[in-house]
Amino acid sequence: MYDFLTPSDIQDILKVKPSKAYSIIRELNNEMKKDGYKVIRGKVNKKKFEERYIYNSVG
C-alpha cells in the first residue's frame, strides 16, 4: 500500500511548525527525485519518511 504524509501529519508526528514540516517534505522529495522517483508536491512517501525520521530503540 502506498501511503503519503501531509505537512499536517508531519507536524503531529514530530511536533514541528508548518514551515519545518514543508522543509522536511522538500528534502525527502528531492532525495526521491535523485533516486529516479516521481513525487507529489506537498506530500511525502510514508516509508521514506519513516526511514529517515522514525527511530526504534533496539533491545
Rank of each mutant, 00 (worst) to 15 (best):
Y2Q: 10
E31I: 05
N29P: 02
S19V: 10
K38N: 15
E51P: 05
G42Q: 02
D35E: 15
K33V: 12
D12N: 04
K34T: 07
G59W: 10
S57H: 05
K33G: 10
S8Y: 15
S23N: 02
N56I: 12
R52K: 04
Y22R: 04
Y53G: 06
N30E: 13
G36H: 04
E31A: 09
N30G: 10
I10W: 01
G42Y: 06
S23T: 13
N29H: 02
K33A: 02
K20L: 08
S8L: 12
D3C: 15
M1W: 10
L28W: 01
G59D: 10
G42E: 01
D3P: 00
K47N: 06
S23M: 10
P7E: 08
S8K: 15
Y22N: 07
S23V: 00
V58M: 13
S8Q: 07
E31Q: 08
R52V: 11
D9V: 05
I40N: 08
Y55E: 07
V44S: 00
N29G: 03
K20Q: 11
D3F: 12
S23Q: 12
R52Y: 09
I24Y: 04
I10T: 00
K47Q: 15
R52M: 05
F4C: 10
V44M: 05
Y55N: 09
D9W: 00
